[in-house]
């Protein structure tokens, strides 16, 4: 039991940090531009594929550095030549633009790399066992992922708290109109934020690709969960996004470890009241728990746990 708790905590935190790498960019983009970017998880996927392509040609480490930059560039270009054009048509059009974009990106990835998972390997320099606890090994690569995520988190905090751009972004989180009125070049800041957000998602993809599976459906799997994270955390709140990421990471990991069902909890009455649902185990419904959380949080507190804006 202790073994399961230890490893579930580790894996849950890791998954949560991975979510946060994407959610941070997504929530920044949303707060500043009002766009819920459906294609955000697609940047994560492109990151993984760029990382794979570079790693098989040059090596993992060049890919680790270059791929996120490339993804950031792609993101900035999409903002400059696509999203900005749609901006005038309102938020719904922007949202639908990213919705279509996610679709096209998935198809392009299908075309270039095929529909089957690609062979994106953990670099040999990290392919060893980090530690062994209760007879279960924990790979060094996962520790590396965790370290990268934490480093990125610290880096993001420093930028936001210590730089001028960070100040503008922070101001724009709560008072986007006022920032524009103060005469800042808002379109460029938008492009920058969109590019950086994409690059962060790309970085998450580069490091998650070898540990999970790099395949065209990886964006579709994560996309909706990201929305859950930023909405539950509170739109526009980085702290909220961070805590919600960890919460969802841990909830999903721990739910898997629980075998119990309503039937086990309250006995046969469960099946009389809930029918088949009475015998469904917590582990079975692990992936839908985030959505349940989403709906409940929004009903009870439409601003999310830490947010103060609704739209």
């Amino acid at each position: 039991m202790l073994e399961i708790i230890t490893f579930s905590t580790l894996n849950g935190v890791l998954y949560g940090m991975l979510l946060f790498m994407m959610a941070s960019g997504l929530t920044l983009i949303f707060s500043m531009m009002g766009v819920l970017n459906f294609a955000h998880a697609s940047f994560y996927m492109i990151g993984a594929y760029f990382g794979f392509e570079i790693s098989r040609r040059i090596g993992f480490w060049p890919g680790f550095v270059v791929a996120p930059l490339l993804v950031g560039g792609v993101g900035a270009l999409i903002e400059r030549f696509g999203l900005r054009r749609v901006h005038g048509y309102g938020h719904v059009a922007e949202l639908l633009f990213t919705f279509g974009l996610a679709f096209v990106i998935e198809e392009l990835v299908n075309m270039f790399w095929g529909r089957l998972p690609v062979d994106y390997r953990v670099p040999p320099s990290l392919d060893f066992v980090a530690f062994k606890l209760f007879d279960t090994t924990y790979p060094a690569y996962r520790m590396f992922m965790l370290a990268t995520a934490v480093a990125m988190f610290v880096f993001l905090i420093l930028i936001l708290k210590r730089t001028r751009v960070g100040l503008i972004i922070q101001a724009a989180l709560t008072h986007p109109n006022m920032v524009a009125m103060l005469g800042h070049d808002v379109p460029t800041v938008f492009m920058l934020v969109f590019g950086v957000g994409a690059a962060l998602a790309g970085l998450a993809g580069v490091i998650a690709g070898p540990a999970l599976v790099t395949q065209p459906s990886m964006a579709g799997l994560l996309g909706p969960i990201l929305f859950v994270v930023i909405v539950v955390g509170g739109l526009g709140s980085l702290t909220g996004a961070f805590l919600a990421s960890l919460l969802i990471g841990l909830v999903q990991t721990f739910a898997v470890a629980i075998n119990g069902s309503l039937f086990d909890l309250i006995g046969p009455t469960a099946t009389t009241i809930f029918g088949e649902l009475g015998s469904v185990t917590v582990a079975q419904i692990a992936p839908i728990l985030p959505y349940l959380l989403l709906v409940v949080v929004l009903i009870v507190r439409p601003t999310g746990l830490f947010g103060n804006r609704e739209t």
Partner: peptide, 16 residues
Amino acid sequence: LHPLLKVTDFAPYIAK
């Protein structure tokens, strides 16, 4: 039983 095509990380199952 685990959800179909929705699990991104099987580490918790492996721990079990």
